[in-house]
């Protein structure tokens, strides 16, 4: 307990303290007003939030569909796929961006194929260094985080319920909507809010994209602290980032506890 307080809480407290201490000395709100006034910060805040929300929505839809197929329309190898998803979770996020560079990068696979086929100078896929590239990478990387709790929830679902429903004449879409979806809601809520928090805090994916146009709060913290040595500014952004994600994480805990997960 004391150890954790020492290595975790004490540093956090220092960050908060430093966020009130501009380089000029003394204690004031100056770093806050400075940072809030800067357009870079506001842009980063906006980018972070919309990216996180969009990625979460994408993960939920994709994860639900994929988990549905694995659980209820099983095919040979479905178990291997779900084990693969577990493995996927243990890899660092930046690998995805690295792979996407090869696939959709300026001289990557997709563009290469396009130029080979059409003889054009440039391929059509130029989105990688835009927020869309980050979005694609985040959806790819975080979808397994939604699928895992979903698969767990589906495995608890009594197959008798599905059989009863189809014997009563319900067709597949109706069963999904009326029986599976309500059962899956807690897992969706829990997985969704976890992904939302993780997306807000994602750093590796954004960093690897190498896109100067895409700045999120975590990269802003990094940039301010390491590249500009503006520690008070970095601390302010950090505090904002912590507040947003801790707030959302608290929500996640409440939701998942109510869901009994």
């Amino acid at each position: 307990m004391a150890v954790l307080a020492l290595v975790f809480l004490y540093p956090l407290a220092l960050v908060v303290r430093q966020s009130f201490q501009p380089d000029t000395g003394g204690t004031s709100l100056e770093p806050y007003t400075d940072v809030f006034a800067s357009s870079a910060f506001r842009e980063a805040l906006w980018t972070t939030v919309w990216l996180a929300v969009a990625a979460t929505a994408g993960c939920l839809v994709l994860g639900f569909v994929l988990a549905l197929v694995i659980a209820f329309v099983p095919f040979p190898g479905a178990r291997a796929v779900s084990r693969f998803i577990d493995v996927f979770l243990s890899f660092p996020s930046f690998l995805i961006t690295l792979a996407l560079l090869f696939i959709y990068g300026t001289v990557g696979m997709a563009n290469g194929a396009w130029t080979d086929l059409t003889g054009a100078d440039q391929g059509p896929f130029q989105f990688l260094t835009t927020p869309w590239g980050v979005l694609l990478a985040e959806i790819t990387y975080f979808t397994p985080f939604v699928m895992r709790p979903l698969l767990a929830a589906f495995s608890q679902l009594d197959p008798g319920q599905l059989e009863a429903a189809s014997s009563l004449g319900a067709r597949a879409p109706r069963i999904v909507r009326r029986i599976i979806l309500p059962e899956a809601l807690p897992a969706l809520a829990a997985g969704g809010s976890l992904v939302l928090v993780l997306c807000l805090n994602e750093f590796g994916i954004v960093l690897f994209t190498g896109a100067k146009g895409v700045t999120t709060l975590p990269t802003l913290v990094y940039g301010k602290a390491i590249l500009e040595s503006d520690y008070p500014g970095a601390c302010v952004v950090a505090v904002v980032n912590v507040l947003i994600s801790v707030g959302l994480y608290g929500l996640y805990r409440v939701v998942s506890r109510r869901a009994g997960a």
Binding site: V15, L200, N201, Y222, V242, V246, Y249
Partner: peptide, 8 residues
């Protein structure tokens, strides 16, 4: 878990 690792 909730605090961004960059902030940690």
């Amino acid at each position: 878990l909730a605090v961004p690792s960059v902030v940690v």
